[in-house]
Simulated assay, not measured.
Amino acid sequence: MSELDRQTAYWDSVAPTKTFTHPLHLPWLDGLDRHAVILDYGCGYGRTVDALAQQGFTHLAGVDTSAGMIARARELHPAMAFDVLDTPPTLARPDASVDAIVLFAVLTCVPGDEAQRRLVGELHRVLKPGGVLYVSDLLLQEDARNRDRYAAFAERYGTYGVFETGDGAVCRHHADDWFPSLLADFEITDTRRIPVTTMNGNASSGIQLLARR
């Protein structure tokens, strides 16, 4: 994964300050055994792992490319398992060893098409047949501020929807038809649109998808 698709220096620098808000839709998890192996890829400071633990799930782990985020996660949740991904998207897990993966606001941090495909391919590898992939991310926004910045950065990054934030990140918002293409090796079983407050405090439109390997 390229440095643009990792941005570890940025995430390390903002790790103490950012707040993530993508909601966990619990009915989508009703069919999972409480001892299922669940991985949070791009776990940040452990917010979603903690929410899963509060619902009684016992076999949880989080990974992230940012050592700063992992340090914060370990400080906030010392009893939970968190690890730094040194060579993303490669996971130190056998094939077909995970029951469910949550991927919350991660694709927005991976601007490149090919990097996103490699990431989803690695998640497909480690999921068991029938395993669940729960994606939550951001759609293209319709307001003038976002349309202007999509247009401003489209030529530089080669993708409409990729933009630079004022504090130094390169992020991506997605056309809704990108997700069926990206998840072509999965069966998408449910989709929901959600309002989301971004890490920089802006109201945005998001999408959540439940898929099975």
Rank of each mutant, 00 (worst) to 15 (best):
F57G: 04
D86E: 15
L183G: 13
T87M: 04
A61P: 00
T17P: 01
L107Y: 08
V162H: 05
G46K: 08
D148S: 10
L139S: 14
V132R: 09
D5Y: 00
L139H: 09
L26K: 11
V196K: 12
D5H: 06
D95I: 01
L107M: 06
A73P: 02
V126S: 06
L24F: 10
A9E: 15
V120T: 03
R117A: 08
E164H: 12
T48F: 02
R193E: 08
F82M: 00
A81G: 01
F153L: 02
D113P: 04
R47Y: 02
Q54K: 15
P23A: 13
G166D: 14
G42S: 02
D12G: 01
D177R: 12
A92K: 10
D86Y: 09
P78L: 12
L140H: 12
D83A: 15
H77Q: 08
M80N: 01
P23C: 06
L32Q: 10
P180A: 09
E187D: 15
V162K: 00
V49I: 15
W28V: 10
M69W: 11
A211T: 04
L26F: 05
G121A: 14
L85H: 07
V84K: 09
Q55S: 00
R147P: 03
D40R: 11
L209G: 01
T48V: 15
Y157A: 09
T198I: 10
E155K: 12
L39Y: 05
R6C: 10
H25G: 01
C171Q: 13
E114P: 02
V132H: 07
V135S: 00
R192H: 07
R213W: 07
P27T: 05
G131N: 10
Y160E: 10
V14L: 06
L210D: 04
D12I: 06
T189S: 14
